[in-house]
Design a protein around this nucleic acid. Structure first.
Lengths: 259, 259
DNA sequence: CAGTGGTCTAGACCACACC
DNA sequence: GTGTGGTCTAGACCACTGA
């Protein structure tokens, strides 16, 4: 049974923060382990002798920190850490593509989870200014826009949207739902755009409500945003890929020279 | 004056979500711009005909998303986007170091903000298991631990903790608060450890309460965690640097080959 | 069914900002 | 001072879970 202290009414820290602090300590010291249920609101009200809103505010703080998740009708639980995918920067190397597999599949086999892709859409649009600039297009050029969602062991972990200049995608499988073995990059190379290098821009923020839905995100879990641009051997930008990843499920690895 | 709709009581979306949605729309459509004040709680209560806790819960949602910040006694404001530092992966290149400047200073001059470092502490400790593994040390070896906080135009943007094997730091300025021109890396190279490459591991999460204090973080702003390991030309790990960055203030750029 | 968290009401007192 | 958000109380009804 979990042992908790009492509120110090003379403390300037408000009661709800004191309660949040005690629960946080219980979690960080291992008195409450991942997946375990916290005392119910009723139990906390009894123990601390406060109103319901006070304990709810404490729990609310912990949720915003991503420490706990609450499940309607069941209870509040210490958030279990999901398995973490380490993404190495060689994940788009040609040797993987040569095997006919997409980067996400290769990664899945290495790490031992079952990969899945859904919600694939393919459209043709005018690029937004950011994409246009990266692809060095005018706003009047067209791009093929490919969106999809990636799942690992059935759980959404990432959404991705690729933008490919229509002139490069024209008449290739890039315009179809199934791009064939090796994915977009293999088709671009088939078309003579031999890939040379990528740049990635990494940031993080809280998800929008739509992203929370699409990625089934608990409160208190941010997203990593990664915008990748692919260049061919003529230094032509051939694709921009905008991805939103569940932050708790990823570690991105990069190598670079000291010279 | 801001125009807002009314709550639809027959909607299954609860009133507080409807209110949050309308405010969110007002922000995303530009009816409320960065830095502008939202209607006061009293005004929202009047307008929507709900209890105070209902409008507070709506605002709470927006705070957790990082869309607004509330200031006690002043109001709730659309969160202004802070200037974003783009960190290129060549920021530790030797040519910068040669000029006698630390990476943070070089970055500051390029981007035009005033750099500052404070809270510098230097201790000698046994490494924790993670650091020990990265530095290929035994738990009995010692490391010099250097912590500091970086500020841009007076605002905290990052905390960093470096771990250097004591055998490499011994007798150098690395053990002192002021490491001299070019910083730790210059001193390691003075000592014959010519730097060859770095690896970085990037993740994101919500800050701990201590981090929120140290970085003066508003609610709804995650942190980027970057763990960098430096290797010398003998492939010896000579430093691990653990950094926590305000996510809204950074974009990390990396380049890598397609081969 | 009982137990859980989700939403809401209608008040209260407080601390802070600004005039 | 007035107006703002921060904290707290003591209820109410609802929706979901699981025995």
């Amino acid at each position: 049974m979990l042992q908790l202290g009492q509120i110090d009414r003379s403390d300037d820290k408000p009661p709800y923060r004191q309660i949040a602090g005690m629960l946080r300590d219980a979690i960080s010291t291992g008195q409450l382990i991942a997946g375990e249920r916290l005392p119910s609101e009723a139990a906390l009200i009894d123990h601390f002798g406060v109103a319901r809103m006070t304990v709810r505010q404490a729990v609310q703080d912990l949720r915003a920190e991503g420490l706990v998740i609450s499940e309607h009708g069941r209870g509040v639980f210490v958030r279990p850490a999901p398995p973490i995918r380490r993404l190495a920067s060689d994940r788009f190397a040609r040797r993987h593509r040569a095997s006919g597999k997409a980067a996400f599949t290769v990664e899945a086999e290495k790490s031992g989870y079952s990969p899945q892709v859904d919600n694939i859409t393919v459209t043709r649009e005018k690029p937004n200014p950011t994409v246009a600039e990266r692809l060095r297009l005018t706003p009047d050029d067209e791009v093929v826009v490919r969106s999809r969602r990636y799942l690992a062991d059935g759980r959404p972990v990432e959404t991705a949207t690729s933008y490919i200049p229509a002139t490069f995608a024209q008449g290739t499988k890039i315009e179809q739902t199934d791009t064939g073995p090796g994915g977009i990059y293999a088709r671009l190379e088939d078309a003579g755009h031999i890939l040379d290098r990528f740049t990635e821009e990494v940031g993080a923020r809280m998800p929008t409500p739509e992203e929370r839905r699409a990625l089934q995100l608990a409160t208190g879990v941010p997203v990593l945003t990664v915008v990748r641009t692919a260049y061919d051997t003529n230094d032509v930008a051939v694709e921009v890929c905008d991805t939103v990843k569940v932050a708790s499920a990823y570690l991105l690895e990069y190598d670079f020279s000291a010279r």
